[in-house]
């Protein structure tokens, strides 16, 4: 399964989201690859089950086959864990 963490530039916020999502997935024993990408790359990708982003960017990711999850606090592993589990389990 593939998850893409998304921010506007694909180098900062998305990378932190990816790192924290990987931590959470490991602790939940879930097997998934997480990539960080900018908006354009994420929009062009069709093979991700989940797009993980921040509330500001949800609107920009509508109309794609992937489920979009907004994370309010990038460092809140509890929030990331709850939202990923709800989507995956």
């Amino acid at each position: 399964m593939k998850i893409i963490a998304v921010c506007g530039a694909g180098i900062g916020t998305s990378v932190l989201l990816k790192m924290n999502a990987e931590k959470v997935l490991r602790s939940l024993n879930l097997d998934a690859t997480v990539e960080a990408a900018d908006l354009e790359t994420a929009r062009a990708s069709r093979d991700a089950q989940i797009l993980l982003t921040t509330p500001e960017l949800v609107e920009k990711l509508q109309g794609l086959p992937s489920e979009v999850i907004a994370i309010e606090h990038v460092f809140d592993l509890g929030e990331i864990g709850d939202k990923l589990s709800a989507a995956l389990l």
Partner: peptide, 18 residues
Amino acid sequence: LGPYSVIAPGLAMPHARP
């Protein structure tokens, strides 16, 4: 795109693409 670079309480990490 909005202030998504404000990643934690009180902390902003602005950036742009390479």
